[in-house]
Design a protein around this nucleic acid. Sequence first.
DNA 1: GGCTCCATGTACCATTTGGTACATGCGCTT
DNA 2: AAGCGCATGTACCAAATGGTACATGGAGCC
Lengths: 182, 182
Amino acid sequence: MSRDSLLADAVEHFAKNGIGDASLRSIATSIGTSHRMLIYHFGSREGLLAEVVRTVEQQQRDLLAEVLATDLPVAEQNELFWRRVTEAALIYGPLFFELSAHAMQDMPHTESLKADLINVWLPPLIELCLRAGLPADEAPAYARLGLAASRGLLFDLLLTGDQAGVDEASALLNRLFSPPVE
Amino acid sequence: MSRDSLLADAVEHFAKNGIGDASLRSIATSIGTSHRMLIYHFGSREGLLAEVVRTVEQQQRDLLAEVLATDLPVAEQNELFWRRVTEAALIYGPLFFELSAHAMQDMPHTESLKADLINVWLPPLIELCLRAGLPADEAPAYARLGLAASRGLLFDLLLTGDQAGVDEASALLNRLFSPPVE
DNA sequence: GGCTCCATGTACCATTTGGTACATGCGCTT
DNA sequence: AAGCGCATGTACCAAATGGTACATGGAGCC
């Protein structure tokens, strides 16, 4: 089994089972290899965790780039953006919040994640707000609020599983933010 | 040392150090007792975690009750509410998100937490939205969005530590939601 | 004083942990 | 065919883990 496919399997395992109690052996068994192999390919448990984080980050960046590369009209790009913000995190479900909590505690394997979670998303969001016609001095606050609301709704969704309620709130978010806002 | 003060110390320890890697012995040493005592008072590690969760829940409920008991004008109560939602979670910082992630994964010590995180907050929030004059059919969505945004901003704050940026977004949230909304 | 009960300390246990040493295979080049 | 290097398996280690057994203290009650 190649290193890359091991990594992909490990990410999937974490997404399903969380990080908390994951020992090298339990991960290895779950993804059909030996704990010896994980050490061999990733050096240590920390090394594996760091790679998992890096993978999650990269996938978030890829999704973001995909949105920005479209040339939809601003309004639709905006909506697509909100959807992506949620989807990007939803892929990994609880893992997203678990990793974030680790980042908040400055745990070693999340060194790069902390800045990434905000910096990767915020600037393009501000840009989108500007393109949507918001005044330059208010765009940052709108962007920040939008990002926050998206993440909060994701939180809500993961906890309750109530897609309908979240969709409704999400639609409201779009309405508050969209056309000639305010 | 009494059971209650042990519990309080344990909560504080978790808030500072996270749950992930906390062994009974490391907790015990950190709060100045022996791991034997923790087992004695809480039965098991799971028992201790469950009690910690219960404590966090209870403190959130107390804070909420405090807000609802005031008879400020609606607008101010509203603002107080937003602030409390953040503060309530901020007390425990990353622990809030770590526990939430555990709840999303249905981990045993968070059985009651899952429902609590939404159900305790949402109904009174809807009530507040109604009192603020929002149409009945839209109040739930507003409440849900507001709760989500507050939590997202908390997330943001814990990650970046950038109080100013979060305050700005928070003010925007209040503006979008307040007077004769929309 | 003697008894009991709760609190605490010491010592121990089997299991699991991350990590290592070493042997073995399998595919490549020469 | 010989040799080499990467991949993998087996066996092992010291340390730490959650939990238990048992002894000991010390305060209150008879």
